[in-house]
Amino acid sequence: MRSLIFKEIDELIFGSLGIIIFISFFIGGVVTIQTALNLNSPLIPKSLIGFATRQSVILEFAPTFTSIIMAGKVGSYITSSIGTMKVTEQIDALEVMGVNSLNYLVFPKIIAMLMYPFAVAIAMYIGILGGWIAGAFGGYAPSGEFVKGLQLDFIPFHVTYAFIKTVVFAFVIATIPSFHGFYMKGGALEVGKASTTSFVWTSVVIIILNYILTQLLLG
């Protein structure tokens, strides 16, 4: 079981770091540019750009946006891999051998996804770094002002809130696609349909839970 969990961590988390870093970097940059372009009053300090970038990235973009991306990348992988095992009778083969197939296939994925907050922490860091680079090198906010804004009115609970959301989303990303793969019927075409359906449902559940958790934790 331990080797299975490590394999899943490698597939689901480390295998996704590239896309997470890439997206976070540019999203951070875009948030900075858009904030800067909308704060054009001379009365508003430039440090607010850094503040807005930090808040946007930590509260929303890193946990929620990354989770939607993961629902597509990891969710599709989970549904299609389990679904293919289903249609090729590999799950029946496990059951006949006396292996609890749900435990063997799904449990390691849930445990592996407990590492997901580390990926989101990296997304937060890279997002803010992207924002700083876009702001400082694009001429939207001086580096010192941006960093000052990053440190402005920092509430540590916002990071806790983001990680609470991340853990809940990790569970959703591991379980909903597993369900769609495990209980699908049909052939290769249905595996594709199940992947699409699982992405849609995972995204919908993430969006709804995002609203509920925000209301509960920050409202």
Partner: peptide, 15 residues
Amino acid sequence: RQEMGMVFQGSALFD
């Protein structure tokens, strides 16, 4: 079940 062996129609090997 551990005393049973099964050969599936499509072999069902873990690919």
